[in-house]
Simulated scan of single mutants.
Amino acid sequence: MWARLAALVFTCVAFSVAAHGTHLSGGMYDWCMFCWVFSFIGTLLVLIVELLNLQSRTPVSWTNFPITLACYAGLLCLSASIIFPLYFVKGYPNNETRDYRIVSTVFSCLATVAYLVEVSLTRARPGEVAAYMATVPGLLKVCETFVASVIFVFISNPVSYDQHPALKWCMAVYCICFIISAAIVVMCVGECTGFLPFPFARFLSAYALLAVLMYLSATIIWPVFKFESKYNSQSRRPSYCSQTRDPCDWDKLVIIAVLTGINFLIYMADLVYSARLIFVRT
């Protein structure tokens, strides 16, 4: 309860200060505002439902929904805590507007910590029987979908996967794994896993293995076809990239490669934990 109240206050201060005194606009500012407002509204709904004891009347699994929301909110606030100072604080002169931006950044970081504390307090402990989204594999599913969403943002602006069939395969990997992971999260939150015609736990392990193999291929293919001079004439960072504050097209390709590797490691951890769950239950 205290972690949620703290997150509620911190996100409220972050977006209120940003809206009042930062004098900003544009896509990155809109994204940061969305992160704070979405997290604030979601946390407020959770607090209202629990204070009024309406858990049994909600159309979702209340053992899965709060921790899923807290995990997504933590990742969103983390992204805002990184993006906001990089774009709107770094390099700007000291004045009152910059002070407002620093305050929003500080409270965004505090909100991130509050959500991480909530997730840590509500996640399942080793050997404890709990809802799937409270386990490590469930939380990893949230991270997988979040990282894939960020990949989609960078890979589509500009479109950077249509130069070669191998790159289209990478895009297919991102889409397929995102859709399945998101579907698993939705099924768990909506308590629909019992309608599957096969054991849910074994499906999770089989999917984790498939996703690891697919992401392994993308982790290798993307850098080869984007940074190898044999396939791409722009194998080095152009000089104009250092003259702009926003990530240039080449930087976005590097970010995609790094995020692909990160998601590969997340799926590897998911596979290990999912296999352990099956063996423990057996």
Rank of each mutant, 00 (worst) to 15 (best):
V129S: 11
V150D: 05
N157M: 07
F195G: 15
L140Q: 04
H164G: 06
A124P: 01
V185T: 10
R98P: 00
L209R: 04
A111L: 06
I176T: 08
D99M: 13
V142C: 11
W169G: 01
E191T: 05
E144N: 07
Q163G: 12
R98F: 06
S108M: 03
G127S: 13
V186D: 04
K141N: 14
K230H: 12
P137R: 02
A130N: 10
C170H: 02
V106Y: 01
V103P: 05
V150W: 09
T219G: 13
I184N: 08
P165G: 05
S235I: 02
Y174D: 01
S156R: 13
S235L: 02
T97A: 11
V142D: 01
E118Q: 09
A218F: 10
K226N: 14
V106D: 01
A172R: 04
L204W: 00
S149T: 15
L167S: 03
G194A: 04
Y100L: 03
P197R: 07
Y92V: 14
L213I: 14
S229H: 12
S156F: 13
N94R: 06
Q163K: 15
F225P: 08
R101Q: 09
E144P: 00
E118F: 13
C109P: 00
W169I: 09
F198D: 03
F227N: 10
V173R: 00
S108W: 01
T145S: 11
K168I: 05
A134S: 13
V117R: 03
E96S: 14
C170Y: 02
K226L: 02
S149W: 09
S205W: 05
S181C: 08
G190W: 03
A182G: 14
A182T: 08
I151H: 01
I155H: 09
V136R: 12
K168V: 05
P126A: 06
Y215P: 09
I102N: 11
